[in-house]
Nucleic acid binder design. Structure first.
Lengths: 146, 146
DNA sequence: TGTGTTTATATCGTTCACGATGCAAATTTA
DNA sequence: TAAATTTGCATCGTGAACGATATAAACACA
């Protein structure tokens, strides 16, 4: 068996698995309010700055518009956001939070901490997390390539 | 703006993004042989040990059988694996590599290194990667909870 | 002004993920 | 051994991801 093909040597498999498992950890907390994890990410973006065009949201999340557009339509159908043509640029669709979308923020106040608590362990502590962030940011920066 | 909701403070978002970007880095290398990234993971598992039941493959990848079953069927349709009823336990489906499936290994020999090279940077080096592995393994171990 | 190009978003098709559920073989237990 | 339970795999439905492509508005420039 070639050592380089060992599953346990693959950084990618660890990232892929950790990402999936953390998303699963969010699931019960979010589904209570009819949200998925990517929809929660959109909310994070809009809570930071309301009324953004689709493209800005997609860029912030490093996703393509063909992923974000259907996602936003589902959120519109749920009454969480509105989508309206841009005033100065008619190509843009401006996404705004509804009252319901803004209101979700206080209902989800405990979510970040709850998930964070579920992750902390021997080698992942408030002291080591910045280092982990740094490495992941390096990888992301290298791969997004722009 | 509540600090705990800042996108940049979310570990999950970094893992999710890093995972997606690395998968994208694999894409051109794998699609040349008609493979997807999850299918490549299945190959890694079978190259380590051929002739495993669906359940063992799913457990190794921490996926559910309802994800792995259709994936294996597509790989069977591509002539990469065979699926046959288990001898001693008729509920099991034993997955075996075909000659083509085994042959893919030498064609993909350079893949792990190519992807690894694309990731190495300031804070991600042969010296720091073991620490990164350890933290991710801790997170995975904590979340898979068994 | 007209024509070509870029930009913003959307549509389509395929492949994951995964919760919920179904089914048949194996196992346990009464 | 019959009945209940567990196990292994599959089906179904929904929601991402994303490559390829389409469409219309904005822009550049001849």
């Amino acid at each position: 068996m070639d050592e380089r093909f060992r599953l346990d040597n693959q950084l990618c498999f660890r990232l892929y698995t950790a990402s999936r498992l953390i998303t699963q950890a969010y699931h019960p907390l979010l589904s209570e309010y009819g949200l998925t994890y990517p929809q929660y990410l959109v909310l994070l973006v809009l809570w930071e700055k309301d009324g953004q065009p689709v493209n800005d949201i997609a860029k912030r999340l490093l996703l393509e518009t063909n992923t974000v557009t259907p996602l936003l339509k589902r959120m519109e159908a749920e009454g969480i956001v509105t989508r309206s043509k841009g005033r100065e640029d008619a190509r843009q669709i401006i996404v705004k939070l509804t009252r319901k979308g803004r209101g979700l923020q206080e209902k989800l106040l405990n979510v970040p901490e709850t998930v964070a608590r579920g992750i902390l362990c021997d080698r992942v502590t408030p002291e080591t997390i910045p280092g982990l962030y740094g490495m992941l940011d390096d990888i992301i920066g290298k791969l997004k390539g722009d």
